[in-house]
Design a binder for these strands. Structure first.
Lengths: 213, 213, 213, 213
DNA sequence: CATGAATGAGGATTCATTCAT
DNA sequence: GATGAATGAATCCTCATTCAT
């Protein structure tokens, strides 16, 4: 189909990328969010134009507004989506026997996009935006609190060697240190994409170890 | 002088804030950069308008273009300035006897502005921009390398208890871990400005200790 | 039926409001015109959107175009409808014994809508539009001529005390004065909805009297 | 000058039309208002585009926003201007010995534009808008009250044959009747530009006479 | 007949940049 | 050097209209 081929050649998103969405509305919203994510990564929240998002999504600009009230709503949706994904990835760490490799894996895990730096780029974009928009700041704050609980649990169980009942709850400063390290690593990944993986792994191990004993 | 008083009342930057600059050109550039920094912190690189920067600097929009080729040049200059400041602050850590408090101090140190979050906000802005602009990415990359050397030296001397000649050079992964922690802490400061300082201090100590033995 | 109830709750027009229309097409057109009138009164000809008319009519936007060629055709139809209604109301004045109360009654008479200002609002809208659209101007012109004949007759019979054969035909300037007064009163009603009715009645009487002797 | 000639050929407004304005800002605002008035008369408040106003004013669209906050502000300014002009014209009636010719003159008096129907067209536009915008409604309401006072005074003095001290104040219903007649006449002028002037004059006289005895 | 998704031109508004004074 | 008026391209968003289902 001509349209399909054109979509691929111009970097537009084809239907096959979309996965299964139950309703047409959800499918369209998903399509827009995928396009928006790509545009936001490439240009940032503010320089990405609705027109470009529409083109990337393979639809007309006007149609965007049937599915999102305005551009800001798209930004919010992207942020919520990223936070949700991030939460899920953190939760997935639970299953890990060994915390170090799990964290490394977390950093590597992309969201299905070919470019792994997507997550990091949006993370920076979101964090910067949170310093100006209180609504976004609140969303990130809620996420941060939830993450801390999750990571505390994780540290707890890792510290007790996998036993279900750790003797003492983990100290909050250890959780804080873990959060900082993870986010610091994300920044490094964004700024030095070719970072030596071995060094990365070692750095993680050093800190993880200091947090576990 | 009427203009001077008006500048102060409206939050504009007056000549007396500028310190000593050798030439008029330098003084004007400095004035613009101070204004730009304030605007960028408040609105981000892209939402801050040249008109607003000019108003904050107490000059006409047209004059901006006598001292900077365009808005992008201002962004570059701000970034270079921030990197330079950051470098100086890192170097100042050398004098410290104890690494932990020094790092805490680094996070607190503002650049003379009353608002301490200036540095963090611009750090996010710069990092996000670096993911899109290769020139900026390179500048940050150069800074990153320089910093690593600096921090390696710092760790070296701290590990050897202040002796001038450490027996073994510090491992690169420890430097990496330190960088991640510092930047992770900056992110935390941006996203949770009311973070408990005691926890912050403890988190720093945990990691510093693990890096020094 | 769920849809019916929803229609009532949201102010949409239900089938039961429509009266008897012979064909389905006529019924649909009537439904659209009722909705359009409401929207035009609320937002004016140009700010009322087809989408909103459709929603008010309880139908899809696309369906509008099965019954009217475009939005302009709806405006024309509304205008013709208003002129027809107005003509009928003027004709109804014939039956009146006393011209003064009849005119007052004319101003009050609504078109079945609960809001009496509908007629006035559309009158302004139409008149304004007539200054730009020659087709509308012509329609109003035809109406104006017909009205003058009607009002001349009315004045004639009123002047002659109800006798069927007045001795002299009424002068055109008296008809003109009557038209001006009626329309001037409509404007007043639109701009001062809380106008004192007693003063209104007196004002009408003064002029009517001067026109009858 | 080429620009000047082009302005004339395309119906743009040249500097010479502007009269004396003290500041540049006032001159530009006046230029915009003149253009806006022309556009509003031609297309109505809502269909006139800012782009077209700018073109008519012989300036770029962006410049409009240096002198008016938004399109609505232009509409407000036009309305205030019209009300002011109208007030002045009404006040000028005071000097008249004879009320009838004075009213006729009022209807004829244009605002310097070549097209006499400008006032009427804007009058309809304003009145229609007042039914939807409460701020405009209030402005017109204030004008209406002021006008009534003015017209009451006028009637008073006319009734008393120019004596300074009329024995009895004029009844409000007479003022109301006068207002209706004047505005009714404006509508007629808009809808029937070729109205017979003799009939018009006679109609005015009939009513004026009935109001004065 | 009916739906409502889709289109795309057009409208209001902003803003980096230029230039006459 | 300095001003700020002026430009015009670009942005977000709306809406009349069409058409596949």
């Amino acid at each position: 189909m001509a349209k399909e081929r054109q979509a691929q050649m111009t970097g537009m998103i084809s239907n096959t990328d979309l996965g299964k969405a139950e309703s047409h509305t959800q499918a369209q919203q998903a399509r827009i969010l995928i396009a928006a994510k790509a545009c936001f990564v490439e240009s940032g929240f503010h320089c990405a134009s609705v027109a470009n998002i529409a083109k990337t999504a393979g639809m007309s600009p006007g149609l965007i507004y049937r599915y999102f009230e305005n551009k800001n709503a798209i930004i919010f949706a992207i942020i919520e989506q990223q936070l949700l994904e991030s939460r899920n990835k953190i939760r997935a760490l639970r299953a890990a026997d060994d915390l170090g490799p799990a964290v490394l894996n977390y950093l590597d895990s992309s969201d299905g996009s070919s470019d792994e730096s997507v997550g990091t780029s949006l993370f920076l974009e979101m964090s910067a935006e949170a310093t100006r928009d209180s609504e976004i700041a609140e969303a990130l704050g809620r996420y941060d609190n939830a993450m801390r609980v999750e990571l505390a649990d994780l540290l707890n169980r890792s510290a007790s060697g996998g036993d279900k009942k750790p003797t003492t709850p983990v100290a909050p400063e250890r959780v804080l240190a873990l959060v900082c390290m993870i986010e610091g690593l994300m920044i490094r990944k964004a700024r030095e994409p070719n970072l030596d993986r071995k060094a990365l792994k070692s750095a993680i191990d050093i800190i993880i170890n200091s947090l576990l004993n």
